[in-house]
Amino acid sequence: MTILEILEFGFMQRALISGIAVAAICSAIGLFLVLRKHSLFGDAMSHVAFGGLSIGLFLNLYPIWTAYAFTIIAALGITKMTDSIKIPPDSSVAILLSSGLAVGIVLISLSGGFSLDLFSFLFGSILLISTQDTITIVFLSIAILAIIAIMYRRLMYITFDEKQASVSGINVKLANYIFIVLAAITVVTSIRLVGVLLISALIVLPNITAILFGRGFKKTAIISIGIAIASVVSGIVISYFANIAPAGAIVLTGVAIFLCTIVTRNIRKSIRPIKITEPYLHNRSQE
């Protein structure tokens, strides 16, 4: 069976389309999180989303919507809190992560153990995504990317230096709140792809890889989105042929790209010193 033939399966088409959409929003949001030294915020929110999912399952509501609501409220709440009482970012991550998980565990124990649904949220279930879900994911992703495209210069400036951005007349607080809501929506939207446990890889890996290329901000963002899409597409394809879990394959592909970039960079660096020794050789010949 060739790669083209697997594209004929409806579930593959849906997986690839929603996978590409999710890859783009995770890496775009992730670039700002990584540069703000807030890499684990995505992880924290995915655990809050887990709490939100279990609320939905427990109350018999549509779990993904309770996850959206719960995550957005929690993310805004913790931002408001860190604003007013100055909690360090890493501690706010710890608070969100553990309370989200705790809510989930309590509700699961109340309702008598793990269900299949919860399992698919923990580890991702991209191959089971419905047409309706694919449409929702694509629609949300386009909206998120459009808002980021409008705000990206401002967000970049705020990430560069909040104080200077504020003196330039940018409404830093408002921009930060909008960003946090976008990040929360991105995380919940992406959970079905790689699951609660692996989401932060999709947010962090493409960006730290892209930053290694040492280009300007815009190029870094484009490289990052490219890497994210490449890892999602090849991860899905590999998972099909090797018959392994797609979420794991996607993340491991991302890790592989990251490692390859580092190795290439180091090889290039170790070539360069030969050029630097040239003046030295020159001096010697003058002696």
Binding site: R154, M156, A165, R215, G216, F217, T220
Partner: peptide, 14 residues
């Protein structure tokens, strides 16, 4: 990762 051109253009925002 911003380059010099991008950083200087921040001053136009707001």
């Amino acid at each position: 990762p911003a380059n010099i051109e991008e950083i200087i253009s921040f001053g136009l925002l707001g």
